[in-house]
């Protein structure tokens, strides 16, 4: 355990815990767009920038991945932090002027019209989609391509990816709603990745409940009963309930 100070609060924490987690416990909110507790910190949006004073030296670091150390003093809202954060928000706004999360942040921090143009990109390149697809799903269907200002997320060679199982985890995590997911007539479409996957019908109620590819993917990795892949969760729950009820009669 180490002892450190965050915004005047002296706290104990496991060594190397990311500062953001410690702050969260204290109820101190640090804004972030690319952090998710289930994923490895990535440090791209830089919104969680805080000031750390260590051995008398102050510097700006990112709270999502800066590890707790003995004796450090952390300021999450110092003048220097706010100044940097505001400019980062302004830069984001100038890239994605129409994104709601960014507009809200701008509002909160009093950032007016960006002084560096008003782009209408929808993707802020936080990488949540890429990371969830690789770290949690394991499909690695999408990745970053190109460098610098041309950087983007896409499937390999911009063509429909074989690896995409249509699970939609990327769309679920996207903070700007840049990844649209639609289930139409037995097909799941994720336009951004050019994905089109047939959905499985529940053998009991007949409703579509998940992409066949996703079910296959899970089947190949986990040793689960066949029934899971035929019936939708609703019907499965119902059938469990009936089974349990039946047990009760014995």
């Amino acid at each position: 355990m180490v002892s450190l100070t965050i915004d005047g609060n002296v706290v104990q924490a496991e060594e190397r815990t990311p500062l953001i987690k410690i702050a969260e416990k204290l109820g101190i909110r640090i804004p972030t767009l690319c952090y998710h507790p289930a994923l490895e910190p990535y440090g791209t949006c830089r919104l969680c920038t805080v000031e750390v004073v260590k051995k008398g030296r102050a510097r700006l670091v990112t709270a999502c991945n800066y590890p707790a150390e003995e004796g450090i003093v952390v300021h999450t809202k110092s003048e220097r932090v706010i100044k940097a954060r505001k400019l980062i928000i302004e830069l984001l706004l100038s890239r994605c002027s129409k994104a709601k999360v960014i507009q809200e942040l701008a509002e909160e921090y009093g950032v007016k019209e960006p002084r560096f143009g008003e782009g209408d990109e929808d993707c802020i390149l936080c990488g949540l989609c890429v990371r969830v697809c690789s770290e949690i799903v394991g499909a690695n269907a999408i990745s970053f391509t190109s460098r610098g200002i041309d950087r983007e997320v896409s499937t390999p060679f911009h063509i429909a990816s074989e690896e995409c199982i249509g699970c939609g985890a990327c769309a679920y995590l996207c903070p700007t709603d840049a990844i649209k997911l639609e289930d139409i007539k037995g097909t799941r479409k994720i336009e951004r990745w050019d994905t089109s996957r047939p959905l499985q019908r529940c053998s009991i109620c007949g409703n579509y409940f998940a992409p066949v590819a996703q079910l296959e993917y899970i089947k190949n990795r986990l040793n689960l009963p066949e029934e899971i892949f035929q019936n939708c969760p609703n019907c499965r729950r119902k059938s469990y309930a009936e089974q349990v009820a039946a047990l009760g009669h014995i």
Partner: peptide, 22 residues
Amino acid sequence: LKEESCGKCVPCREGIRAMLEI
């Protein structure tokens, strides 16, 4: 530098672009 920044983080990617525009 605009061409060679990896583009991962906001200040470098967007900041260099903004400075270059100015």
